[in-house]
Amino acid sequence: MSYAVGDALPPFVVTSASPAAMRDWSVFLADPNPIHLDVDVVKAKGLGDKRINQGPMNVAFMMNMLLAAFPGARIEAMDSRFLDNVYEGDHLTASGTVTAVDGNHLTCEFQLDVAGRGTVNSGTAILII
C-alpha cells in the first residue's frame, strides 16, 4: 500500500457521544469530575445542559481514525489541541489528511468535528507504517 500527500483518511464516526462511556472514563482516569456525570452540575456551572465528554476520549477517537486508516501502523507522535467541548448526544466525525511521506513515516493532520458545530479538536500526528 502506498500513500501520497493529500490522501484523505477514511472518517471514524461516533453517532452519539455516550454518557455511559463518560461514566467508564471517569473510572479509567480516576477523575470523578461531575461535569462528565451530572447534568445538574453542568447547569449549575453555566456550562450548558448536557454532560461533557472527557477530553482524552476525544483524542482516542482521533487515534482510532488514524490506526484504522493505516492497519499495522503505530503512532510515533501526536499533538492535539482542544478547541471546544463535546457534549452527550453529539454526532462526531474524526477525519484526516496525509501531509508528508518520508520513508515509512507519515505525517497527518486530523480533526474532530461535531455535526452542526464544527471542529472541536485538531492536530498533527506522525505514524510509522
Binding site: 477530553g55 483524542v59 510515533e76 501526536m78 499533538d79 489541541r81 482542544f82
Partner: peptide, 8 residues
C-alpha cells in the same frame, strides 16, 4: 485542557 502532545 488546552493541548496534549505525546512522543512514543
Amino acid at each position: 485542557m488546552g493541548s496534549s502532545g505525546v512522543r512514543f
